[in-house]
Simulated scan of single mutants.
Amino acid sequence: MKPPELPSAGRADVRIVAASPEAARQVADVLRRRFAATEQRSYPVDDSGGTRLHLTVDTIHTPEPAQPWLVSSRPSGDVRPQTDEI
């Protein structure tokens, strides 16, 4: 048996096996909050209804931090009331 091919430097291949597709997606979402990642690929796990999910994460370039709702909802400086607010 030949050894698995290693990902390029700065990348890590992640395999998630879960009882449901939703559980696998939740774990992938948590990883994406910390690491930039490729599009996930999912496969069924035999007839059990489980899901195997693969994605590659970039361990060098992290995604931009999400802004809290309050910060992202602040006015842009133009504080004039809109016509539908009068």
Rank of each mutant, 00 (worst) to 15 (best):
P65F: 12
A12I: 05
R15W: 01
D58H: 08
A36F: 09
R32E: 05
L31V: 07
P75H: 11
R11C: 12
S8I: 11
A24Y: 02
W69D: 14
F35M: 04
G77R: 04
H61R: 09
I86Q: 11
I16C: 09
W69A: 14
I86F: 04
A12K: 01
R34S: 15
Q82M: 14
P81T: 10
V45C: 09
E85F: 02
V79A: 05
D78C: 12
A66V: 15
L6E: 15
P81F: 08
Y43H: 11
R33E: 03
I16G: 06
A19T: 11
V17W: 00
V71C: 13
S8R: 07
P4T: 03
S73F: 00
T59Y: 00
L70C: 08
T56R: 06
D47I: 01
V79L: 11
T59E: 01
Q67R: 03
P65N: 11
R41F: 00
Y43L: 11
G49N: 03
D46S: 02
A9R: 10
V30A: 15
S42Y: 01
V79F: 09
S42K: 04
T62G: 07
P3W: 00
M1R: 06
E5P: 10
K2S: 14
R11G: 05
L70H: 08
D78Y: 06
G77Y: 00
L70T: 10
G49A: 03
T56P: 00
Q40H: 10
L53V: 06
E39C: 08
A66T: 07
R80V: 07
Q67H: 11
S72E: 11
T59R: 01
P4L: 05
A24M: 10
S73Y: 02
F35T: 06
W69F: 09
R33D: 01
V45F: 04
D84W: 10
G77C: 02
L6C: 03
Q67F: 02
A12M: 13
P44D: 04
Y43V: 12
A36H: 11
G49V: 03
Y43D: 15
Q82E: 06
P65A: 14
R80T: 07
T51S: 14
R15C: 13
P44L: 03
G77E: 00
S42D: 12
I60N: 06
D78G: 14
A66Q: 04
R34P: 11
V79I: 10
F35C: 08
A12C: 10
P4K: 02
L31K: 02
V45T: 08
P44Y: 05
H61M: 09
S72A: 12
L31T: 03
D47K: 03
E64F: 07
A36K: 10
T38V: 10
P7A: 13
A37C: 08
I86Y: 00
R80L: 12
Q82A: 11
Y43C: 07
E5Y: 13
V79Q: 05
S20A: 07
D13C: 08
S76F: 08
E85M: 14
V45Q: 03
P3Q: 09
S42F: 01
S20E: 04
V71G: 10
P65S: 13
I60S: 03
T38F: 01
R52S: 12
Q40D: 01
P21Y: 04
E5R: 15
G10W: 01
A18Y: 00
V57R: 04
H54N: 12
